[in-house]
């Protein structure tokens, strides 16, 4: 293992977050068994009071997880000088088999956390704790995810050995090799562009529908998730090539480097934020039938959808701009 402060911080944060979410889950189990809103018993009063603490703990944990996701990627990028063969975060994540699972699990925790926070925010607006069971049920499902992310990260950092020769983005994201990354990289640019445009139209259309008609939050959430997956694939197989002005360089991390004007941040931050908001809108929308929430749900869905649509629009605008301003010309080859 490499003893560096960022690694120590990441390990510390995930240990504490796992502990907090674990405590919250234990409380969730207790609550699911004993909760009875109609009762005026001392136990019920204690449970009600404790939900404030748990909600604060979980909200805090997810915010910490979000920051630690950023730190994880940033740290992987910064550590590439310490491994032979690594030129960016891809090489570092490839040093041992736990790098990529950690990243994916952290992203999964981020999105489920966003959904939980959306439900929690909505629940706080109903006077009779209408979603309390849903929230704590979701927490039971979430805890294994947090635990897995923490364990994968610990295994990744403990297994980092500087004498390992790793392979970086040039090797991993090439259509000739095998695996998911290669499949994504091997996607024909024309097809990727088409898929990106179609998913963009779908998600922006669904968003506009929600804003105009005030319904369809669920489908918008689903469209957002689809748009996210397509967008990541398109960044690898299409947008990155134009950013690097190189028809074979598919790396999703090198776009974050200063040499490319940090364009990666302009792509990823709006995309991740918009997807989190869209998923939140999708999770909130079905609860309009609950009497105590009937008033709050439409406003919540609309607010999240509006912000999500702005985020997606920004992402598509930046992606288009990156392609248009590039000096790479592939007419008659791809188009």
């Amino acid at each position: 293992m490499l003893l560096n402060p960022a690694i120590l911080a990441l390990l510390g944060v995930s240990a504490i977050v796992t502990l907090l979410v674990g405590a919250a889950t234990a409380f969730g189990l207790h609550l699911l068994r004993e909760w009875d809103i109609a009762s005026g018993s001392e136990l019920q009063l204690r449970l009600e009071r404790r939900t404030y603490l748990i909600a604060t703990l979980v909200a805090f944990s997810f915010v910490a997880e979000l920051v630690s996701l950023l730190l994880f990627v940033y740290n992987a990028e910064a550590m590439h000088t310490q491994f032979v063969g690594a030129m960016c975060a891809t090489g570092v994540l490839n040093v041992n088999p736990w790098g990529w699972p950690t990243l994916f699990l952290k992203i999964a925790v981020f999105f489920t956390g966003a959904v939980w926070l959306a439900l929690n925010h909505l629940d706080n607006q109903g006077h009779d704790y209408p979603l309390v069971r849903v929230k704590y049920g979701l927490l039971l499902a979430l805890f294994p995810l947090v635990l897995a992310a923490g364990a994968a990260q610990a295994l990744f950092f403990l297994g980092l050995r500087p004498d390992v020769i790793t392979s970086c983005c040039g090797a991993l994201f090439s259509p000739e090799s095998a695996g998911v990354a290669a499949e994504v990289a091997g996607l024909a640019p024309a097809r990727a562009a088409l898929a990106l445009a179609a998913s963009g139209a779908l998600v922006l259309g669904a968003g506009s529908w929600v804003l105009l008609r005030g319904s369809g939050g669920g489908p918008f959430g689903a469209a957002g998730l689809l748009a996210f997956v397509v967008a990541i694939a398109a960044v690898v197989s299409l947008v990155a090539l134009y950013v690097y002005e190189h028809p074979h360089h598919h790396c999703p991390f090198c776009v974050l480097k200063p040499g490319h004007d940090h364009v990666g941040y302009w792509l990823y931050v709006p995309l991740f934020a918009a997807t989190a908001l869209a998923l939140g809108a999708g999770a909130v929308a079905p609860w309009r039938r609950v009497p105590s929430l009937a008033h709050a749900v439409p406003g919540e869905v609309r607010r999240r959808t509006r912000l999500a649509v702005i985020g997606y629009a920004l992402f598509y605008a930046v992606a288009t701009y990156a392609i248009l301003r590039s000096n790479l010309t592939m007419t008659d080859v791809w188009w």
Binding site: P5, L10, G12, V67, S68, L70, L71, Y74, N75, A78
Partner: peptide, 12 residues
């Protein structure tokens, strides 16, 4: 990166 790490060591 350093500022973020320091943040995690103190504010967190």
């Amino acid at each position: 990166l350093q500022v973020a790490t320091l943040f995690f060591f103190t504010v967190f």
